[in-house]
């Protein structure tokens, strides 16, 4: 840069007129007008009844419903992700029985709409008044040996007690989610290079160890973005449990207030705002999860690591090895 071998002076830096983008300015102007119109409508249209909405949307029954929605979201996603991982692993297993079971499971729960599942699970009490655990076909086996009223049951409980609205809704959503999560996890596992498994096999690790320590952590990078999608979709699908019926749920409670006060529209707006807020919180969580699982991958992750190593080197000599 400094001394040119040919002895010529360094040329002037380029000062060119940049390309103009008039289209962008037109676009900004159009958008500004539309936004102004929208805001004007929000402020002037009396149907919104903002003060009424704000008064109502934080009342105890709504907060109860919010708690119900969040609880339902968490439990059904825990079931969905946990069971989904198991089904995905079964689907990729060398064991044909496990593969078949996993296939049937995904087939069934992806085929039936969640709304139908929710109603179905809400009415399972019709099939059994009591749920009991013990030897299967105990009566038939007893009859085979000439014993009447032979029963081998360990414990049981009333189906109506267990399959209350909340549990039924949670199972309907969670089991359905597991089918979708299974496909996402399967795609994630298959995205990991075959060489990773081979290297781990060559070190003498077992199938389970390879899956847990090598393949799944790398698959997470691929699994998390669609799982974020699923979680947001699930947040919205929790409103389906109103059909189970479950009343401790955000939208049901907001609608109830709307019906009671004959002011439904402000409550629909309140529902929109609540779901926007919850989704935004979920997005923040997803950002941090993605960052965690991108360790050692990609440009941004690598740059951050390099920076951390530099600071570690200048700090103490062993801090780079600390895990």
């Amino acid at each position: 840069m400094s001394a040119d071998t040919s002895g010529r002076a360094r040329p002037e830096p380029i000062k060119a007129v940049p390309v103009r983008h008039p289209g962008r300015w037109v676009g900004v102007a159009v958008i500004a007008v539309l936004v102004a119109m929208f805001v004007h409508m929000l402020v002037t249209n009396s149907a919104f009844q903002w003060s009424f909405m704000v008064d109502e949307m934080f009342r105890p029954p709504i907060i109860e419903g919010l708690r119900g929605t969040i609880l339902l979201l968490i439990t059904s996603m825990v079931i969905g992700i946990g069971l989904g991982i198991v089904i995905a692993i079964m689907r990729l297993s060398p064991n044909p029985v496990l593969r078949g079971v996993a296939w049937v499971y995904t087939w069934f729960f992806r085929a039936v709409p969640r709304l139908v599942l929710a109603i179905l699970f809400g009415n399972l009490g019709i099939l059994w008044s009591r749920l009991e655990f013990g030897l299967p076909f105990d009566r038939q086996i007893g009859a085979l040996f000439g014993l009447h009223d032979f029963e081998a049951r360990l414990f049981g409980f009333s189906a109506v007690d267990i399959l209350t609205g909340f549990v039924a809704g949670m199972l309907a959503l969670g089991l359905s989610e597991a089918a979708y999560m299974a496909e996402i996890v399967r795609a994630g596992i298959q995205s990991v290079d075959e060489g990773q498994t081979e290297a781990a096999q060559a070190l003498g690790m077992s199938r389970a160890q390879i899956l847990r320590r090598i393949v799944l952590p790398q698959a997470m990078r691929v699994i998390i973005p669609p799982t974020g999608n699923e979680t947001i979709a699930m947040l919205k699908d929790t409103s389906l449990v109103a059909f189970v019926p479950v009343s401790m749920e955000l939208f049901f409670q907001l609608k109830a207030v709307g019906s009671r006060t004959f002011q439904p529209f402000p409550m629909y707006v309140a529902a929109t705002l609540w779901y926007l807020l919850l989704t935004s919180v979920l997005l923040v969580g997803q950002y941090y999860l993605e960052r965690h699982y991108s360790k050692g991958f990609g440009r941004s992750g690598r740059a951050r690591q390099r920076l951390r190593n530099l600071t570690a080197e200048s700090g103490s000599t062993t801090s780079g090895t600390a895990q």
């Binding site: 060489g195 290297a199 060559a202 050692g296």
Partner: peptide, 23 residues
């Protein structure tokens, strides 16, 4: 797996575990 523990292998494409540090 137990037999493989006594046999080390080095691959053409390294196959290091990218989510773990060198150590």
């Amino acid at each position: 797996a137990a037999q493989r523990r006594a046999i080390g292998m080095v691959f053409q494409r390294f196959n290091l575990f990218p989510h773990m540090t060198v150590l």
